[in-house]
Design a protein around this nucleic acid. Sequence first.
DNA 1: AATAGGCACAACCGCCTCACA
DNA 2: ATGTGAGGCGGTTGTGCCTAT
Length: 238
Amino acid sequence: MGRQPCCDKIGLKRGPWTIEEDHKLMNFILNNGIQCWRLVPKLAGLMRCGKSCRLRWINYLRPDLKRGALTEAEEDMIIKLHSQLGNRWSKIAAHFPGRTDNEIKNHWNTRIKKKLKFLGLDPLTHKPIEQSDLENDNIKQQVSSDKKEEINEKLKLQETLPCLDYPQEQKKIQNSTSSSSLNESLEMGSSSEMFQNSDTLETFSRDMYNPGLEDPFQNWIGSPIRWDLFDNLEDNFL
DNA sequence: AATAGGCACAACCGCCTCACA
DNA sequence: ATGTGAGGCGGTTGTGCCTAT
């Protein structure tokens, strides 16, 4: 027979994660590592399915996550990789240590797509929209010389300025990196009794919710956790 | 000040692949 | 050899925040 089901979906919590849930999951994984996602919620005392825990860890709690907006260089690299790999976000994300596929996918859908369209490029083919339409649909349309000139201008602009400046967008990004929710989380995290006995967790929690601090990954690397001690974890619990 | 619309992103859904029993 | 579940992935949705009116 196959394996046991990951969750029975009865009485499981859905929707946004609370600080307390984050702490429980983080606490469990930092102390025990990841053996089997199906067991994680049960052992960590969470009313979530393993899949949800995995996603939360990978996309938000992982200590090696790079926080803050993607840089222009990263954005250019995404465009380049997308032209080669298509919508294979996990493959693209593999080129960006600390970035998640979800993050890159979201960034693509919300920003880069628009930017390419603005430049007159088809986000799917990375070719000028008119050319791409002709190839895709086999519809021969007469493109006005004015339009061609406009596209050429945009392409020239793209060559000289790989990433256009979007003052409003940048402002939003700056605002978002210091969002109130993160600050609230920081306050709650630092005052939580849950981590009073763990310097590592306290440091990690503080850094995670405060992207402005320098290199939280260093703290993680320097943490005293020894993963090899938890190889027999499942045996101990079951 | 209130509200509508847009935006960004976290989370969910459903499918696919592979490993396990 | 085969059926089933876990994990992984990409697409989509929901929600909260921000901005413009």
